[in-house]
Design a protein around this nucleic acid. Structure first.
Lengths: 186, 186, 186, 186
DNA sequence: CATGAATGAGCTTTCATTCAT
DNA sequence: CATGAATGAAAGCTCATTCAT
């Protein structure tokens, strides 16, 4: 039932936009009564949060899956693969990304978004720490990871949403360059 | 009177948050009647936009002013000065930045925000083009500028809002490193 | 509940006039909340239309009922009975007729009003067609009916609302004369 | 200046419809300030009334002018000429007629409309009284005139506005028939 | 006379939420 | 559990009118 509600919510969000997304509309789309919705969620915000959360999970899964079989490739190949997987995942759901990133007040999914980011920062810190000898040692892995994650997140998201006149391959190369110029020892 | 309304709007936005910011409340805070507000603005969105615009202008002015007297310093010093000025400006109004960046749906000030970003991208492209011999020649200045602007914008904003456990000097150094690793010929 | 709203609406319409009839006032008069009104009607216009529709239905019913037991009287007696029934019905609700005919913009109940008129034109066309041998054959029944219906409608309505110095029996005779001069073969 | 306001009002009424016709809009269209309007008219209703009054006057003038040179034609020719002149006049301004007859609450121009009708009834009574020997003597001229005026007014107006599938010549003949069947001695 | 900024009550409509059934 | 009618505060916005200048 929770799933039914979340599916309905996503549909409404996509079809009508955030401003027109009401609990009543979500309930109608889910084929249940407005009252029932409140037996599974505390309030509207909780519903929206859950929808966004599910979206983020799908996103992570997709990226993770793409990377599973390249886990031991060399550093540069790994970076490129990750970036491509990430952009692919974002592009697969541009319309929904637009709603999440452009229409939803960040407050409505802040907790969750930061949790995800924190998790990625964690993974990345580990990755950096593991390669410490080839990489920089003048900064803590956590700091480096924080910077990288925010930068990559913002750049890929904006790229997909703004569609600037930069072709995909060039864009990926530039991100690689950004990473390669930032992380390694020099 | 326009100023009176914008001041009131800013206060309400800060005090009550975006969702609770109504035209009636702004009018009340400004000590005028709801009808009067509509003599100066076409609709609610126009009011919010004007408030955000004024904020952005203040921001730009503050950064520009900080840079005025360092205009002919060397590249690296210039970069560091700019970053510091930017972070200073953002920190001076964290509460309002939180509203603008986290609560306002981007759609509500998108046009303007993108216009500003485009302007900065323009300036930066020129800067890069001018230093072409020391910098990379394998990418168009526009592309490089697009990447840099989004990255810096996102990183400084998130830094100020999230207050990660990275001290200010370290953070600025890391941004410098990011720029220095991305732009120059290698 | 629909009835409760329509009753309230009629009261407000009569008491306060069309311009002062607001959805809030109707809801208040009905003893319900403004929101509830919108569970039964799409918008204000739908409420007004329904009120007018109910009034028209009452009107038709009253006329039809009056005629039921005179169904097989001769043509002239039938005409006189119809006219009397019609005027009786209109007079029974002069105040409301005034609101409907004089205050409501025709646009607000046009569709329905024209539908009713069309129905009456249809009935009358049939009536005329059936008596074709005694009546005129130089004009289509539809045209004759259109003319008669508009004329009778306007004259009875105006008579009831304007109360000209013409006594009721004289007025009915004049209408009969109008019909008798227009329809029959000569 | 009064004329300027009335011109503006007519334009607004035609362009925006009755509901969207505000004193502010009329003033703007007239190129004056809202305050000035109130130096020439007591309130909004007075403005609308004056506009309608001017329209009615134009209408009368047009009909009267068309009839001036046929003043001594025979009865039937006179009737036909009058009807044609009336329909012509109404058709020349259908859009405005629609606003006046369908959108304006009759209350807003009632006084005036009835005055005009009363004047026409007067003229017609005189006409009937003068021809008393060929016409009916079993009814007062005033009553006969009242009936005729309301009938003709309603029928021509509705004909022009509803455009029923009756061609113009047929329609005029039917009206003639209505008059010829009602007025003369039999 | 003319202005036009200011008014403020009131409009239609929405919607997150509740609660008796 | 599910319902869904009912809520009622509040939203954005309009507009006839006034009055100090």
């Amino acid at each position: 039932m929770v799933d039914r509600i979340l599916d309905a919510g996503r549909i409404v969000l996509l079809r009508d936009g955030h401003d027109a997304t009401s609990t009543n509309r979500i309930a109608a789309q889910a084929g249940i009564s407005p009252g029932s919705l409140y037996q599974y969620f505390d309030n509207k915000e909780a519903v929206i949060s859950a929808i966004v959360e599910r979206y983020s999970d799908e996103m992570s899964e997709r990226v993770t899956a793409s990377l599973a079989d390249r886990f031991d490739e060399s550093g540069p190949a790994m970076v490129r693969a990750t970036l491509n997987a990430l952009i692919d995942a974002l592009e697969e759901n541009v319309e929904f990304l637009r709603v999440v990133a452009d229409e939803l007040p960040r407050s409505e999914n802040q907790v969750r978004a930061e949790a995800l980011e924190q998790r990625i920062v964690g993974l990345m810190s580990a990755y950096i720490a593991a390669r410490r000898e080839q990489l920089r040692r003048d900064v803590t892995p956590t700091t480096a990871a924080w910077v990288m994650v925010r930068a990559i997140e913002a750049l890929t998201t904006r790229y997909v949403l703004e569609r600037p006149p930069i072709d995909r391959d060039t864009f990926v190369s530039e991100l690689e360059r950004l990473v390669a110029g930032y992380l390694p020892e020099r």
